[in-house]
C-alpha cells in the first residue's frame, strides 16, 4: 500500500506549474512539503485529487503516473479517487449554502455503500441519520468543534479556524489511506494547532500516509514529519529529515532559488 508519484508535470493556460515531480509515500508516515508562495504546492494537492482544470503531462518521453496501491489515479474522477482512499483537506474550502457537513458525509457514506447509480429504496434515512450523527458529534467534540457548526451550511460565514477544523473532522470520518493537508495550520491559534496536530498523529497511527503542506515549523513540532521536501518552482529541490524544516524557518528558500 503506497502512493507513488512519477514524472508529474502540470500546467494551466499554458503556464507550467509542476515540473517533473516524483514522490514516494509510505503508509503511516508524515511527509512535510514546504516551499515559497507559488511554488506549486497547492497545485500538486489538487492534481492528486483530480481537479479537472490542469493539464497533466510527463517528463520528455516518460509518462506521468500516480499509483495508489497499484491503481493508476490519473484519469480517474475525484470521487473515484476518494473511494480508493485518497483525501484532500482544502486550503480554502468553498462554502456550500444549505449543505451541512452531516448531509455531505452521509451522502458520501451512502454513495460508498450503494452500487452505481442506484438509490436504495429500502434505505432508511431516519435510522442512519441518528447513528451516523452520533459518531459525527463525538468526533467533533474531540476536535473542539461547536456542535452548532455541524448543522449550519458548511463553511458559510465560518472563521478560518472553523473551516480548518471541519476539514480535519471530514478526514477523521472518511478515514482515508492517504491524505493531503494543504496549509491546515494557517490561521490557527496555538490551542487549535495542537488539536489539529493530534488528529494528524492519530491518522498516522492508523496507518494513513500524510502529505502535509505548510509554511511553518510550528505544526511540524506537534506533528513531527518523517520526511521533509522542499518544492521550489515546480521541482523538488531537496529531501531531508525534520532538521530541514528548521533550515527553512531560519533562512527561507533563497538557497534553492535559481
Amino acid at each position: 500500500m503506497k502512493l507513488e508519484i512519477k514524472n508529474l508535470t502540470a500546467s494551466i493556460n499554458g503556464k507550467k506549474i509542476l515540473d517533473g515531480i516524483s514522490l514516494h509515500l509510505e503508509p503511516g508516515k508524515i511527509y512535510a512539503l514546504m516551499g515559497p508562495n507559488g511554488s506549486g504546492k497547492s497545485t500538486l494537492a489538487q492534481i492528486l485529487m483530480g481537479h479537472p482544470a490542469f493539464e497533466v503531462g510527463g517528463v520528455g518521453k516518460k509518462k506521468p503516473s500516480v499509483m495508489l496501491n497499484g491503481t493508476q489515479l490519473l484519469g480517474l474522477s475525484p470521487d473515484k479517487r476518494s473511494r480508493l482512499g485518497l483525501f484532500l483537506a482544502f486550503q480554502n474550502p468553498v462554502s456550500l449554502p444549505g449543505v451541512n457537513v452531516s448531509n455531505l458525509l452521509r451522502s458520501a457514506a451512502h454513495e460508498a455503500n450503494s452500487s452505481k447509480n442506484q438509490i436504495k429504496s429500502n434505505f432508511n434515512p431516519a435510522l442512519n441519520v441518528i447513528s451516523f450523527n452520533e459518531i459525527l458529534f463525538r468526533q467533533a467534540q474531540n476536535i473542539s468543534i461547536n456542535p452548532e457548526l455541524l448543522r449550519r451550511s458548511l463553511n458559510e460565514d465560518f472563521s478560518g479556524g472553523e473551516k480548518k477544523k471541519l476539514e480535519i473532522l471530514q478526514s477523521v470520518i472518511l478515514s482515508p489511506k492517504y491524505a493531503v493537508f494543504d496549509e491546515i495550520d494557517t490561521g490557527l491559534d496555538v490551542d487549535a494547532l495542537k488539536i489539529v496536530a493530534r488528529q494528524l498523529m492519530n491518522l498516522k497511527k492508523q496507518g494513513c500516509g500524510i502529505l502535509l503542506i505548510t509554511h511553518y515549523l510550528r505544526i511540524l513540532q506537534f506533528a513531527r514529519p518523517d520526511h521533509v521536501y522542499i518544492l521550489v518552482q515546480g521541482k523538488i529541490k531537496e529531501k531531508g529529515g525534520f532538521n530541514l524544516a528548521g533550515v527553512v524557518e531560519k533562512s527561507g528558500y533563497r538557497k534553492w532559488a535559481s
Partner: peptide
C-alpha cells in the same frame, strides 16, 4: 463546489443534487 464534494466521494450527480 463540485470538485470539493466529489473529493469527498460523491458522484457528480449526487454532488449536483446536494
Amino acid at each position: 463546489q463540485l470538485f470539493y464534494l466529489m473529493s469527498r466521494g460523491l458522484s457528480q450527480a449526487d454532488a449536483q443534487a446536494l
